[in-house]
Amino acid sequence: MSLIINGVAVAPPADPRVSLLDHLRETLHLTGTKKGCNQGACGACTVLADGERILSCLALAVQYDGRSITTIEGVGQAGALHPLQQAFIDHDGFQCGYCTPGQICSALGMMMEAKRGLPSNVTSDLTAAVTLDRAEVQERMSGNLCRCGAHNGIIDAIRLSVEAAA
């Protein structure tokens, strides 16, 4: 078997200790995905596994053998940005940019979750359709910290992208 990274089949590491994050960065040199805490606390390492957002620092690469992983490199490229990447630029969704790849992958996963109707901790009616108001986006993105404090711009960028896509 193999890992599918941004559509390309890649061998899993021989050593099962290697995290998906280290496999991406050190072996495949896909350094867009960032290492913040390496213990699940910051969200900088967020990638999509079969479209679901996960933390690559807590994922053993071997466990994701056979799964399809999308990193920020698979979301868009220079000159061909994803609309959400453009929205982060337009609405000051970052300062240093270190948390940004994780924020963007996380937001893409979050939008799919909301579309499916997954409630959050601040949803009052668990069975109603989800409206991504500010409080909802804030709660759903709480797994991604920004040390520069660009959270307001991040929330604006995500909300305006959701509106534009609707």
Binding site: L55, M110, P119, L126, R140, S142, G143
Partner: peptide
């Protein structure tokens, strides 16, 4: 779970982060 055991849905959604809950 959402309709018959809301306490369970709410407890899960109060824990960790979305990424961790997905894993």
């Amino acid at each position: 779970v959402r309709s018959r055991y809301p306490v369970l849905a709410r407890a899960i959604l109060a824990g960790a982060s979305a990424q961790i809950r997905n894993m």
